[in-house]
Design a protein around this nucleic acid. Structure first.
Lengths: 73, 73
DNA sequence: GGGACAGTTATCATATATGACAACCACGCA
DNA sequence: TGCGTGGTTGTCATATATGATAACTGTCCC
């Protein structure tokens, strides 16, 4: 797995959990105090997100931090 | 849990797994192609590490990416 | 004392994540 | 047609992660 695939996989995890909860990107951004453009970039795997951002997202989704990072080894 | 505690917890996870494997920070840095000073900052929780760095570290330690982020919710 | 090793800390330059904001696209609906 | 909503993309400024490097501390052993 290369780096780009990693980001895409993390972003897909986030998107999946967000949609399961019936939230829009705007909803999630508001709960995270983050920009919706940033959420979009993260979900699309276009950015190398930080632990801080991941943490805020995990809190907003009500999941464990590690859940965002479950990718095939 | 605040942000600083989060970083410290992640750093402690990394340190613990590194030491379990009998590696020095220098060893880990070399396997990650990262600076040893950076490893030191990350383990001490003084930096908001990125997914890329976490990924390289997890590969070098031979653990799943999510394992680095196992923190109390 | 002195050398080797592990880790920490400081500084500087560079790359980039994010915030802030705007424009845009696609879609559904009235 | 037009409007609202969800998402994407672009730009700019700022903050900061990291690389590169060096100096420093503490420890262990000769």
């Amino acid at each position: 797995m290369n780096e780009q695939q990693l980001f895409i996989r993390i972003g897909s995890n986030i998107r999946e959990m967000r949609e399961e909860r019936g939230m829009t990107q705007q909803d999630l951004a508001a709960r995270c105090n983050m920009e919706k453009s940033n959420i979009s970039r993260i979900e699309a795997g276009r950015t190398n997100l930080t632990a801080r951002s991941a943490w805020k997202i995990s809190q907003a989704l009500g999941v464990k931090l590690g859940a965002l990072f479950e990718v095939d080894f």
